[in-house]
Design a protein around this nucleic acid. Structure first.
Lengths: 166, 166
DNA sequence: CAGCAATAGTATGCGCGCATATTAATTACA
DNA sequence: TGTAATTAATATGCGCGCATACTATTGCTG
């Protein structure tokens, strides 16, 4: 409601304007749920970035580390593919980020026992410790970020679930 | 509710596991609103990318183009700063993307009449036409993407508004 | 009007996010 | 059993998204 007239009208053509105005309802980031979604996620990523900075982890690095800790508890060897599926990350990016984490000695990428193509991911002691510590920071960051939603958080989460796999 | 036990328990330590499980409630992308938000936005961006591909525009390029069309209708000269503020885009990225759009002859970046630092952005005829066409495609894409929310869309949009500027 | 903080825009660099394509190994099937 | 289709991982490349730092200009203040 901050922009009263939905149609600007051809009153002011501007300096040597060859065309005219825009023939759309909005698309000005004030109403479109898509643009809002994009902006909010950028804000959330910035918050996560700040929260994880003390641990030297990016958002994706943290997600893969924590997801690996989660999957590792199931016993079966965790491949990059399974980790990428669980974390909903791109396999290509997953491969690259995992090699970064390996170079930091946060995990190992040993050959898979039954599949010569695949690799078995295992957190190192240091990686497991860091994952646990970072999880607390990330969850605290999340809680603060979504606090303004208050009681409507479950509704919002349900909507996101609906949009994740319609 | 897909993962019944909140605590995996120390029943299966796995093969030569030095540490133990993960000491968190979830963080497995099934419950966290942050991770859901991230995944849904990635899906939305992929949808926008596909919808805008026929027009040779990326998501950000489209947003800047459409936002410029919107601001241009107000008469006053549009600077990069004002466009970035309106579109909530990073000024650095805005500068680079605008130069890309200028190289495609979709807009001009003339010197500002009253400020030698700034530049006045103006859509070319081709840019204005493309903006109008692409807006229709992007809005159709948005409508399809958020269709599963049905009547709850306003509630979802309100939540995003709350999270954009708390 | 002299000095200085604020501002518009840009160079550089890193890390996603993903499209495309390739290699090597596994599985499916005739 | 031999060949084809599938799959795990990766090389390459482009476009954000943003942090940091820099130049040039404006405008504020005394």
């Amino acid at each position: 409601m901050s922009t009263p007239p939905a149609e600007p009208g051809p009153a002011e053509p501007g300096p040597a304007d060859p065309g005219k105005g825009l023939a759309t309802g909005f698309a000005s980031a004030d109403e479109s749920p898509g643009l809002l979604l994009w902006q909010v996620t950028n804000r959330w990523q910035a918050a996560q970035r700040a929260a994880l900075k003390p641990y030297g982890l990016t958002h994706v690095q943290f997600v893969l580390l924590a997801s690996l800790a989660y999957l590792q508890a199931e016993g079966t060897p965790v491949t990059q593919r399974r980790l990428a599926d669980h974390a909903a990350t791109d396999p290509m990016m997953t491969s690259q980020v995992l090699r970064t984490l390996e170079s930091r000695a946060l995990l190992t990428r040993a050959p898979h026992p039954h599949d010569a193509r695949a690799r078995t991911l295992t957190l190192t002691q240091e990686g497991a410790t860091l994952a646990n510590t970072a999880v607390a920071a990330a969850e605290a960051c999340d809680a603060a970020f979504f606090a303004p939603l208050a009681a409507t958080t479950p509704t919002f989460t349900a909507a996101l679930h609906t949009l994740r796999a319609p």
